[in-house]
Nucleic acid binder design. Structure first.
Length: 260
DNA sequence: ATGTCACCTGCGAGGTGA
Protein backbone atom coordinates (compact mmCIF):
# COMPACT_ATOMS: atom_id res chain seq x y z
CA UNK A 1 0.00 0.00 0.00
CA UNK A 2 1.33 3.38 -1.06
CA UNK A 3 0.57 6.39 1.18
CA UNK A 4 1.57 9.95 0.26
CA UNK A 5 1.71 13.20 2.24
CA UNK A 6 1.91 16.60 0.57
CA UNK A 7 1.39 20.18 1.73
CA UNK A 8 -0.18 21.48 -1.49
CA UNK A 9 -0.46 25.17 -0.42
CA UNK A 10 -3.98 25.83 -1.69
CA UNK A 11 -6.19 23.38 -3.62
CA UNK A 12 -7.61 26.13 -5.83
CA UNK A 13 -4.14 27.10 -7.05
CA UNK A 14 -2.86 23.51 -7.20
CA UNK A 15 -5.68 21.31 -8.55
CA UNK A 16 -4.14 20.59 -11.96
CA UNK A 17 -0.67 20.02 -10.46
CA UNK A 18 -2.06 17.68 -7.82
CA UNK A 19 -4.13 15.71 -10.37
CA UNK A 20 -1.08 15.31 -12.61
CA UNK A 21 1.01 13.99 -9.73
CA UNK A 22 -1.73 11.66 -8.45
CA UNK A 23 -2.22 10.22 -11.94
CA UNK A 24 1.49 9.37 -12.21
CA UNK A 25 2.24 8.29 -8.63
CA UNK A 26 -1.15 6.66 -7.99
CA UNK A 27 -0.95 6.41 -4.19
CA UNK A 28 -3.65 4.33 -2.47
CA UNK A 29 -4.01 7.08 0.14
CA UNK A 30 -3.04 10.75 -0.08
CA UNK A 31 -2.82 13.20 2.83
CA UNK A 32 -3.03 16.85 1.83
CA UNK A 33 -2.33 19.82 4.08
CA UNK A 34 -3.00 23.56 3.63
CA UNK A 35 -5.94 23.04 1.30
CA UNK A 36 -7.01 26.61 2.21
CA UNK A 37 -10.62 25.78 1.43
CA UNK A 38 -13.92 25.23 3.16
CA UNK A 39 -15.31 21.69 2.84
CA UNK A 40 -17.98 22.75 0.31
CA UNK A 41 -15.44 24.23 -2.11
CA UNK A 42 -12.99 21.32 -2.02
CA UNK A 43 -13.15 19.70 -5.50
CA UNK A 44 -14.00 16.20 -4.23
CA UNK A 45 -15.55 15.22 -7.59
CA UNK A 46 -12.26 15.77 -9.41
CA UNK A 47 -10.63 13.20 -7.14
CA UNK A 48 -13.60 10.83 -7.16
CA UNK A 49 -13.15 10.70 -10.95
CA UNK A 50 -9.62 9.43 -10.27
CA UNK A 51 -11.03 6.65 -8.09
CA UNK A 52 -10.69 8.18 -4.65
CA UNK A 53 -12.96 8.46 -1.65
CA UNK A 54 -12.57 11.92 -0.14
CA UNK A 55 -12.75 13.19 3.45
CA UNK A 56 -12.16 16.88 4.17
CA UNK A 57 -11.65 19.04 7.25
CA UNK A 58 -11.34 22.59 5.97
CA UNK A 59 -11.81 26.21 6.94
CA UNK A 60 -11.92 29.54 5.13
CA UNK A 61 -8.69 30.98 3.75
CA UNK A 62 -5.99 28.97 5.45
CA UNK A 63 -5.07 25.64 7.09
CA UNK A 64 -7.31 22.69 6.17
CA UNK A 65 -6.52 19.00 5.58
CA UNK A 66 -7.94 16.34 3.25
CA UNK A 67 -7.68 12.57 2.96
CA UNK A 68 -8.03 10.67 -0.33
CA UNK A 69 -8.32 6.89 -0.34
CA UNK A 70 -8.93 4.30 -3.03
CA UNK A 71 -10.32 2.07 -0.25
CA UNK A 72 -13.50 3.21 1.50
CA UNK A 73 -13.16 4.81 4.93
CA UNK A 74 -14.44 2.65 7.78
CA UNK A 75 -14.15 5.65 10.11
CA UNK A 76 -13.17 9.33 9.91
CA UNK A 77 -12.20 11.63 12.81
CA UNK A 78 -12.08 15.39 12.21
CA UNK A 79 -10.16 17.68 14.57
CA UNK A 80 -7.45 16.92 17.13
CA UNK A 81 -9.11 15.91 20.40
CA UNK A 82 -8.31 17.73 23.63
CA UNK A 83 -9.34 21.38 23.16
CA UNK A 84 -12.95 22.17 22.19
CA UNK A 85 -12.00 25.86 21.80
CA UNK A 86 -9.46 25.14 19.01
CA UNK A 87 -11.16 26.07 15.73
CA UNK A 88 -8.15 25.59 13.44
CA UNK A 89 -8.59 22.77 10.88
CA UNK A 90 -5.32 20.86 11.14
CA UNK A 91 -6.22 17.23 11.80
CA UNK A 92 -8.10 14.37 10.15
CA UNK A 93 -7.91 10.61 10.69
CA UNK A 94 -9.17 7.83 8.46
CA UNK A 95 -9.32 4.07 8.95
CA UNK A 96 -9.33 1.61 6.03
CA UNK A 97 -9.54 -2.18 5.89
CA UNK A 98 -6.69 -4.13 4.30
CA UNK A 99 -6.09 -7.89 3.89
CA UNK A 100 -4.06 -8.02 7.13
CA UNK A 101 -6.63 -6.04 9.15
CA UNK A 102 -6.87 -2.24 9.35
CA UNK A 103 -4.59 0.75 8.80
CA UNK A 104 -5.27 4.10 10.44
CA UNK A 105 -3.92 7.20 8.68
CA UNK A 106 -3.56 10.38 10.75
CA UNK A 107 -3.08 13.50 8.62
CA UNK A 108 -1.74 16.57 10.43
CA UNK A 109 -0.87 20.18 9.63
CA UNK A 110 1.09 21.09 12.74
CA UNK A 111 1.15 24.80 13.64
CA UNK A 112 4.14 26.78 12.33
CA UNK A 113 4.71 28.61 15.63
CA UNK A 114 6.42 31.75 14.33
CA UNK A 115 7.13 34.30 15.59
CA UNK A 116 8.41 32.65 18.76
CA UNK A 117 7.65 35.68 20.96
CA UNK A 118 3.96 35.55 19.99
CA UNK A 119 1.14 33.31 21.19
CA UNK A 120 1.68 31.14 18.13
CA UNK A 121 4.69 29.38 19.67
CA UNK A 122 2.94 28.20 22.86
CA UNK A 123 -0.03 27.19 20.68
CA UNK A 124 2.32 25.00 18.62
CA UNK A 125 3.81 23.34 21.70
CA UNK A 126 0.38 22.79 23.30
CA UNK A 127 -0.87 21.30 20.00
CA UNK A 128 2.09 18.89 20.04
CA UNK A 129 1.21 17.84 23.59
CA UNK A 130 -2.39 17.16 22.50
CA UNK A 131 -1.05 15.17 19.52
CA UNK A 132 1.09 13.12 21.90
CA UNK A 133 -1.96 12.36 24.06
CA UNK A 134 -3.95 11.24 20.99
CA UNK A 135 -1.06 9.02 19.82
CA UNK A 136 -0.79 7.48 23.31
CA UNK A 137 -4.48 6.60 23.02
CA UNK A 138 -4.03 5.10 19.52
CA UNK A 139 -1.05 3.03 20.71
CA UNK A 140 -3.32 1.20 23.16
CA UNK A 141 -5.19 -0.27 20.14
CA UNK A 142 -1.97 -2.08 19.12
CA UNK A 143 -2.81 -1.58 15.44
CA UNK A 144 -0.78 -0.25 12.53
CA UNK A 145 -1.11 3.52 12.14
CA UNK A 146 0.84 6.27 10.45
CA UNK A 147 0.97 9.93 11.45
CA UNK A 148 1.64 11.80 8.21
CA UNK A 149 1.89 15.45 7.44
CA UNK A 150 3.56 18.82 7.65
CA UNK A 151 5.04 18.78 11.16
CA UNK A 152 6.71 22.18 10.83
CA UNK A 153 9.60 20.66 12.80
CA UNK A 154 13.19 20.18 11.60
CA UNK A 155 14.18 17.11 13.65
CA UNK A 156 17.99 17.42 13.52
CA UNK A 157 20.74 19.73 12.20
CA UNK A 158 21.17 17.31 9.26
CA UNK A 159 17.63 18.17 8.15
CA UNK A 160 18.33 21.85 7.35
CA UNK A 161 20.76 23.46 4.90
CA UNK A 162 22.14 25.90 7.51
CA UNK A 163 21.33 25.00 11.14
CA UNK A 164 22.86 28.18 12.56
CA UNK A 165 20.52 30.36 10.51
CA UNK A 166 17.45 28.54 11.90
CA UNK A 167 18.31 28.38 15.62
CA UNK A 168 15.73 31.01 16.58
CA UNK A 169 12.97 29.77 14.30
CA UNK A 170 9.98 27.89 15.72
CA UNK A 171 10.66 25.03 13.26
CA UNK A 172 14.09 24.34 14.81
CA UNK A 173 13.85 25.63 18.37
CA UNK A 174 14.95 23.13 21.04
CA UNK A 175 11.41 23.10 22.47
CA UNK A 176 9.90 22.05 19.11
CA UNK A 177 12.55 19.39 18.56
CA UNK A 178 12.07 18.08 22.12
CA UNK A 179 8.33 17.74 21.54
CA UNK A 180 9.07 15.87 18.28
CA UNK A 181 11.50 13.55 20.10
CA UNK A 182 8.81 12.93 22.72
CA UNK A 183 6.68 11.43 19.92
CA UNK A 184 9.57 9.19 18.84
CA UNK A 185 10.09 8.21 22.48
CA UNK A 186 6.55 6.79 22.56
CA UNK A 187 7.90 4.13 20.24
CA UNK A 188 7.16 5.69 16.85
CA UNK A 189 9.53 5.34 13.89
CA UNK A 190 10.55 8.21 11.58
CA UNK A 191 9.98 6.24 8.36
CA UNK A 192 12.24 8.37 6.17
CA UNK A 193 15.14 8.09 8.61
CA UNK A 194 14.58 4.35 8.95
CA UNK A 195 15.21 4.08 5.20
CA UNK A 196 17.78 6.84 4.54
CA UNK A 197 20.76 8.19 6.47
CA UNK A 198 22.04 10.79 4.01
CA UNK A 199 21.96 14.37 5.37
CA UNK A 200 20.23 17.24 3.55
CA UNK A 201 17.18 15.39 2.20
CA UNK A 202 14.56 18.12 2.03
CA UNK A 203 10.77 18.33 1.62
CA UNK A 204 10.35 22.15 1.59
CA UNK A 205 12.09 25.01 -0.15
CA UNK A 206 10.90 28.58 0.44
CA UNK A 207 9.58 30.53 -2.54
CA UNK A 208 11.90 33.40 -1.59
CA UNK A 209 15.54 34.12 -2.34
CA UNK A 210 16.07 31.29 -4.84
CA UNK A 211 15.89 28.66 -2.11
CA UNK A 212 15.04 25.84 -4.56
CA UNK A 213 17.83 26.75 -6.98
CA UNK A 214 20.35 26.91 -4.11
CA UNK A 215 18.95 23.77 -2.42
CA UNK A 216 18.27 25.78 0.73
CA UNK A 217 15.68 23.33 2.03
CA UNK A 218 14.21 21.83 5.18
CA UNK A 219 12.92 18.34 6.04
CA UNK A 220 9.66 19.12 7.84
CA UNK A 221 7.16 16.68 6.25
CA UNK A 222 7.25 13.33 8.01
CA UNK A 223 5.72 9.90 8.49
CA UNK A 224 5.83 8.60 12.06
CA UNK A 225 4.86 4.92 12.30
CA UNK A 226 3.39 2.87 15.12
CA UNK A 227 5.35 -0.32 15.92
CA UNK A 228 2.82 -2.42 14.00
CA UNK A 229 3.16 -0.13 10.96
CA UNK A 230 6.97 0.03 11.24
CA UNK A 231 7.07 -3.77 11.03
CA UNK A 232 5.41 -3.42 7.62
CA UNK A 233 7.61 -0.57 6.30
CA UNK A 234 8.97 -1.25 2.82
CA UNK A 235 10.16 2.17 1.66
CA UNK A 236 9.87 5.90 2.24
CA UNK A 237 11.02 8.42 -0.35
CA UNK A 238 10.84 12.10 -1.13
CA UNK A 239 9.64 13.04 -4.62
CA UNK A 240 11.28 16.43 -5.14
CA UNK A 241 10.40 16.60 -8.83
CA UNK A 242 7.16 18.63 -8.48
CA UNK A 243 9.12 21.47 -6.84
CA UNK A 244 10.60 22.19 -10.28
CA UNK A 245 7.23 22.24 -12.09
CA UNK A 246 5.31 25.35 -13.10
CA UNK A 247 3.34 26.95 -10.24
CA UNK A 248 4.72 24.55 -7.60
CA UNK A 249 3.80 24.16 -3.96
CA UNK A 250 6.71 25.08 -1.69
CA UNK A 251 6.51 21.49 -0.30
CA UNK A 252 6.95 18.20 -2.19
CA UNK A 253 5.30 14.79 -1.68
CA UNK A 254 6.74 12.10 0.58
CA UNK A 255 5.70 8.54 -0.30
CA UNK A 256 5.54 5.56 2.06
CA UNK A 257 5.10 1.90 1.11
CA UNK A 258 3.63 -0.53 3.63
CA UNK A 259 3.17 -4.29 3.20
CA UNK A 260 -0.47 -4.93 4.09
C1' DA B 1 18.01 40.85 0.46
C1' DT B 2 13.16 44.91 1.41
C1' DG B 3 13.93 38.65 -2.13
C1' DT B 4 7.58 34.84 -3.09
C1' DC B 5 3.16 32.98 -3.13
C1' DA B 6 -1.91 32.22 -1.92
C1' DC B 7 -6.06 33.90 -0.14
C1' DC B 8 -9.00 37.43 1.93
C1' DT B 9 -11.98 41.69 1.04
C1' DG B 10 -14.44 43.42 -2.60
C1' DC B 11 -13.14 45.78 -7.29
C1' DG B 12 -8.06 48.10 -5.86
C1' DA B 13 -4.40 47.10 -3.35
C1' DG B 14 -3.20 46.22 1.27
C1' DG B 15 -3.42 42.64 5.19
C1' DT B 16 -2.44 37.93 6.86
C1' DG B 17 0.01 33.67 7.00
C1' DA B 18 3.65 30.97 5.71
Amino acid sequence: MKIATWNINGIKARLETVKTWLGAASPDIACFQEIKSVDENFPAEAFEELGYNVAVHGQKGFNGVALLSKLPFDEVVRGLPGDPDDVQARYIEGVVSVPSGVVRVVNIYLPNGNPIDSGKFPYKLAWMERLKARIEELLTYEEPFVVAGDYNVIPTPEDVYDPAAWLNDALFRPESRAHFRALLNLGLTDAFRACHDEPHQFTFWDYQAGAWQKNHGLRIDHFLLSPQAADRLESCDIDSEPRGWEKPSDHVPVVLELAV
